[in-house]
Design a protein around this nucleic acid. Structure first.
Lengths: 242, 242
DNA sequence: GCAGCCGTTTGATTTAAGTCAAAATCCGTG
DNA sequence: CACGGATTTTGACTTAAATCAAACGGCTGC
């Protein structure tokens, strides 16, 4: 699902913005790239803790992350909240809002971040002129659906250790695809946010980290994680006890 | 999210096929509707137990359910499987496959069903000519994302009783939107399939049904369900203990 | 640089749901 | 219509994760 594409490659492909998810594999002409650049030229900064948008806000634009890290979360009537994803450089947020012209989740920056705003009506217009772009938008939305199904599998049928292993391996892959180390990275989110995403309490997340460390699978110290035994982590996943 | 639209209304809106999800709210011209009809005119029958498609199969078309009932499920390497959704008349399946040109889940008929095949390349082409159709496709994909987020909330933060209540209320709503009774319906799926969808074991599903019955919330007898106290069921959801 | 607060770890205990098992019921098929 | 396999129900017991609680550590802002 994720190709190992270097960060430099990304920067070359799209002039103003490292939107590898939006503009990378299109093979567009120069004119078309220029149109796209124009579409995407509204930049915005978010400080750690800022909401890029909140559930209920009217929908205008998708957002592409240039730099930084976000969580998205849905809120239930009774105040319960569920983190639905963590999002990094090159990923697109806000697609849930298209269906009702209203955002259905909050997007919160977990570190100071820079985003590109993509007015959705313009994007649709441009898609009509550039079939490859239209198709690519569909792929991006479809990828989000596939990702969500993966999370459903995780939440519906895995136990704590498997969930955390899957989480770490997923982050590892995504960092690798962006040219960062797949085996050592900084967690931007708290144990509680990880727990919310994985359907676990924060204490369970913490205990499971500790157990992984004791067993030599990883080294954790606060938010710094180092994967020591990738193979064993993967094994944890595929031979799931059921 | 679901409007109370009668089944007759659906049939009027789209001549060959009750695709309320695809063609209902578009306000298309007659020519445009004719184009759409042509797009959608490949019909297919599925017997109970048949797979409409399987994970790994090449992607060509989306599928709209004319009549019948489906489940979709993703499979994990180790044989574990997770039901990702139950789908009824008027709903569209297969959007997960766009991202990789390969289906990522199985779609299995839970009763004899009739579907319309929608060649996706044609749909994209038509979307370029008919902006309202293009936008509507985006809404449908977005709706799937929102739905999946709802399931993630359910799996990540609800307990067994709440999950089952949410499940029953969701079915109720969807039957109501199609002109069927919201309070008495036939479950097409087994307890095990319900359990897979809700992240519970079949015994837990069965016990929870029994408890609901004892408490007068529903009457169940095998696959026939009758909701006796909708208000109490809803209350179970919104005042969730956490 | 220090105080205070938030986040994390770890332990003891509880509990919701899973597991194992057996009986009952349903349903499709020959 | 009867048989046999599949599905469902219910019970007894186990277990993984939640809860409650306390101590610790590390940022952050003053």
């Amino acid at each position: 699902m994720l190709n190992p594409i270097s960060i430099n490659h990304l920067k070359t492909a799209c002039s103003s913005c490292s939107l590898h998810e939006l503009c990378l594999p299109l093979g567009l002409s120069e004119t078309e790239i220029a149109q796209l650049d124009q579409l995407v030229n509204r930049k915005r900064h978010c400080k750690r803790g800022d909401s890029l948008y909140r559930a209920g806000a009217p929908f205008q634009s998708l957002f592409a992350i240039r730099t930084g890290f976000f969580k998205t979360q849905v809120l239930h009537d009774d105040g319960r909240e569920q983190v639905t994803g963590f999002h990094m450089l090159g990923e697109i947020m806000g697609m849930d809002a298209i269906s009702s012209d209203t955002h259905t989740c909050d997007a919160v920056a977990l570190e100071d971040s820079e985003i590109c705003e993509i007015p959705f009506a313009h994007l649709e217009q441009l898609g009509r002129d550039i079939p490859a772009l239209q198709h690519h938008l569909h792929k991006i939305m479809s990828r989000e659906i596939v990702r969500d199904h993966g999370v459903m599998l995780l939440l519906g049928s895995m136990k704590a250790e498997e969930r955390l292993a899957a989480f770490l391996l997923n982050l590892s892959q995504r960092f690798a695809a962006r040219g960062y180390s797949p085996s050592a990275f900084h967690l931007r989110m708290t144990r509680e946010e990880i727990g919310s995403y994985l359907g676990l309490k924060l204490e369970t997340v913490s205990r499971t980290f500790s157990r992984f460390q004791k067993e030599g699978l990883i080294a954790v110290q606060n938010k710094e994680v180092q994967i020591k035994d990738m193979t064993a982590l993967k094994a944890l996943l595929s031979q799931g006890s059921h």
